[in-house]
């Protein structure tokens, strides 16, 4: 509880420092609303022109895209800055200060690098979710709402953990990690669409070693009444399990890398 309160306090001060420049903050929000709004409009237009994308109608594709972007925004607000700063932290020794604070080093780092700019993604994806939910023929029972909430959280946990796991080697290499770059490429270019459009080996990869499929594609099928994929139908329920496993792997990676951390700073 104490850690949580401290975390909120640090985030509050970060918010205050950003609000010092309201023009820049609002300009940034407007730019991202425009960019992502147009991106989603184009995606809708593409699928609308053809009727379906691998059996997914435009509303379903937008629903999937919005869920992916929302879970990315929630995850990246905690982890984007820290992942980008890993090499610099190791070079100038600023990581040292995280180890001498009266709280968990990783929580301290996440709090001090918390990125409030992602509020714009959250706002635009909420609008896209409302649009797609209003047009989908899904019966919204209490259980379905609960599953939607759970899949947003698990999607965010999966994306956040994968970002950290892929970027963390930069603490050792002291330059941007190739695995980190690989994660951004895959996440940015391949995951926004139903993964059933890819060849089977790629689908298998996204269902096993790189569990991108569990961010949105598999769990969203519970709501849409679909059963696609290359593995048994139970896969669509496995997102929470994958999220918990990734948390453990992230903790192991963090402990492994920081246990032998040597400061290079002055």
């Amino acid at each position: 509880m104490h850690t949580f309160l401290l975390f909120c306090k640090i985030v509050k001060y970060r918010f205050r420092s950003i609000i010092e420049y309201p023009g820049a903050f609002i300009g940034g929000l407007a730019a991202q609303w425009l960019a992502y709004g147009i991106e989603m409009m184009m995606l809708f237009l593409i699928v609308w022109n053809f009727g379906t994308l691998a059996g997914w109608v435009p509303e379903e594709v937008i629903f999937l895209y919005a869920l992916w972007l929302l879970s990315y925004a929630i995850a990246a607000s905690f982890t984007f800055n820290i992942c980008r700063n890993f090499p610099q932290m190791a070079i100038n020794g600023s990581l040292d200060e995280a180890f001498i604070r009266p709280m968990s080093p990783i929580v301290y780092l996440i709090a001090t690098t918390y990125n409030l700019g992602y509020i714009s993604h959250i706002m635009i994806t909420t609008a896209a979710l409302i649009f797609s939910i209003s047009r989908l023929t899904v019966v919204w029972s209490v259980l379905n709402w609960f599953w939607l909430f759970l899949l947003i959280i698990t999607g965010a946990v999966i994306q956040g953990c994968m970002m950290l796991i892929c970027d963390m080697p930069a603490l050792r290499t002291r330059s941007q990690s190739p695995t980190g770059m690989f994660f951004w490429d895959v996440n940015w270019w391949l995951i926004q669409y139903p993964i059933s459009i890819y060849p089977r080996p790629v689908q298998l990869l996204f269902t096993s070693i790189l569990p991108f499929g569990f961010i949105g594609f598999y769990p969203v099928q519970v709501l849409l009444g679909k059963q696609e994929g290359i593995l048994p139908e139970i896969t669509i329920w496995l997102s929470p399990v994958v999220a918990v496993m990734l948390i453990f792997i992230t903790v192991l990676c963090w402990r492994g890398l920081t246990s032998r951390y040597e400061s290079a700073g002055t």
């Binding site: 420049y21 023009g23 820049a24 300009g27 730019a31 425009l34 995606l43």
Partner: peptide
Amino acid sequence: TDYWCLSWFKRALFVLFGGLA
């Protein structure tokens, strides 16, 4: 006072009106 958003505006305009997407 800040300029990072300019590239977002530019890309959005070219995606919508330029046929990029």
